[in-house]
Design a protein around this nucleic acid. Structure first.
Lengths: 341, 341
DNA sequence: GTGAAAGCGCTAACAT
DNA sequence: ATGTTAGCGCTTTCAC
């Protein structure tokens, strides 16, 4: 009943001998390929299970020149937003026989290059990677690969093959418009100082553009390094409001530090959204239970993952212009005044 | 300069021809193996880069019977705790040439079995998987594989090969002792209703054991389904306190719903930790910025990942008893009364 | 419906 | 220091 611990991994040949069926037919059964009689099928399946045979995809991949892997390259796993994207990818890949393989770059282009090199060496079926900014070598590698490449989460720039995401410039611009419409004028920004976080950079760019349309300029900025947390949001908010107490609005580069800022303001007994308004970015539902809901923009993370997966799996065909632009959705929450009638 | 888009992937042979060096020597250069003269090396590297050659690990793996992959199987990515574990694994694998490949089971044993089957078919160097509870078939597969298998995050039970983690029974028991020592007696529990979350189950088990030692019983329980969030923590806390207003302590099965409970109690103006005490589990620093710090137990997630990775990479050797038990650390925070002198 | 032969692109082992 | 040969375990292709 219980197979003895083998000293070498089992091969098709073992199953073939145990079942008295040729290797070729065993292979057919195990892959549900071609016509095999029910009786033979049964024999093979029984033998395979009894032995505890696990196919060798290395050999199979080499022979067939096809591998059911999709390379997914993202900057970080601790950022809350990427697990959502992965969820979308995973859900959409589930019924395709394709499997996502995740690589993490820590926002380092050099590391991204290494990760890509490594993943491409497994000859995946397609590549999904975050962002549009890559080293020359990385771009060349992807181009040379001849694989479908989907760059996700950003559409402001030149792509290699196909893009799926939102425009962060637009998201920033729209948030500026909402804030101005609500009557706020003395606006500060709290964000990460990561030159490699291009999406945050583009959001700020769009935001300042949006303000400029109304002749408004940012009155203060506060930057930080490293990961985002509630605590950091608190500290930065304290700092920027100490420096510039006249501010009536704070735009945070993500929901996590935004929530920290929110808690800080509540602690200080400030009137939100009267005395001061707040907004973040991403639309992470993790933070839904805060005392009041932070205004934010939904970055459509799950949809982005889904659409990207549909492209690499061949469920969808890329549009003529090679761009699938999703619409970032403004979520007003409770931290922005209603627009005056 | 820019290589033309190839219609078939490049092979070693292409590099060999372009550089005038034998395939074998090209292979040696590309793997930094054996003695190769600096001149030859140079020639090969130049040719490979110029062509944009990316090695084929499928073929390499088949030929060498070795694959630099470590299978990592976890229940979820959105749970906050698993990215930490992955961080530890990744950090420790970084200088070993091994690469983690992540599989997600969504707490489903059937899915775990599938994921394992799939990963084993790539013949990885080792397997790291969360928990001790697996289907018979999964255990058999792992045993048959002949690979190093490290089960992580739990040591309360029978392992397949080597275990790295904390005892959740002990963690629950210790929390009970702390709570009782602080003088609380009317205790409620708020937790997930997932029969497949064995670690949460064991924590509760240990917790009740700990209470029982002092003749105390849980006065109320509130269970929920699905993922954890601040919002759910609030709702459940509201519900349990409505049903059992006399409770003076709530033990939450994780920090996220614990934080939700904390916010709820603060909203209601309850005196914490005087009128009511609270504690969670995990020690996620994400929540550090809350108005007051939730008492919790640090589950040593990063260390667990590191130690597991050291085992599969051969940096460490498993101890005689095949168990590496880490010590869960109590973090008092501000939501438990000081122990009376 | 089943089988035999060839070969996928590399690397181990053995020359030289 | 470099080259030659054989073969990893499968699947493709073709034959029956």
């Amino acid at each position: 009943m219980i197979p003895t611990r083998p000293r070498r991994p089992l091969t098709l040949r073992d199953v073939s001998e145990a079942s008295g069926v040729s290797e070729m037919t065993v292979s057919r059964v195990l892959r549900n390929r071609g016509d095999v009689s029910a009786a033979t099928r049964e024999k093979v399946l029984t033998a395979a299970k009894a032995l505890g045979y696990v196919p060798n995809k290395i050999a199979g991949g080499l022979a067939s020149q096809r591998v059911n892997l999709v390379a997914v390259v993202i900057p970080s796993l601790s950022n809350l937003v990427f697990p959502d994207v992965l969820g979308g990818i995973s859900a959409e890949l589930d019924d395709t026989g394709l499997q996502p393989v995740i690589g993490v770059t820590n926002y380092s282009p050099a590391r991204e290059e290494m990760v890509l090199y490594d993943m491409l060496s497994w000859r995946p079926t397609g590549v999904i990677l975050a962002g549009l900014e890559h080293s020359r070598a990385a771009r060349a590698m992807l181009q040379n690969s001849g694989l479908p490449v989907v760059e996700i989460m950003d559409i402001d720039g030149e792509g290699i093959d196909t893009l799926v995401g939102i425009s962060h410039i637009r998201a920033g611009r729209e948030m500026a418009a909402r804030i101005l419409a609500a009557g706020y004028r003395r606006i500060g920004f709290v964000g990460t100082h990561m030159p490699e976080d291009h999406r945050a950079r583009k959001r700020l760019l769009g935001f300042e553009e949006g303000l400029a349309l109304a002749g408004v300029q940012l009155e203060a900025r506060e930057y930080y390094q490293g990961g985002s947390s509630l605590l950091k949001g608190r500290e930065l908010t304290d700092r920027i409001l100490t420096r510039a107490p006249e501010l009536d609005f704070l735009y945070f580069s993500n929901d996590m530090i935004g929530a920290g800022g929110l808690l800080h303001c509540l602690d200080k007994g400030m009137d939100i959204p009267g005395r001061i308004g707040l907004a973040g970015f991403n639309g992470v539902d993790l933070l839904d239970g805060l005392p009041i809901r932070l205004a934010t923009t939904d970055a459509r993370r799950v949809d982005v993952g889904r659409r990207a997966a549909r492209l690499v799996s061949g469920k969808d065909v890329a549009p003529e212009n090679r761009i699938i632009a999703l619409t970032p959705t403004f979520l007003p929450g409770d931290t922005i005044r209603a627009v005056p009638a």
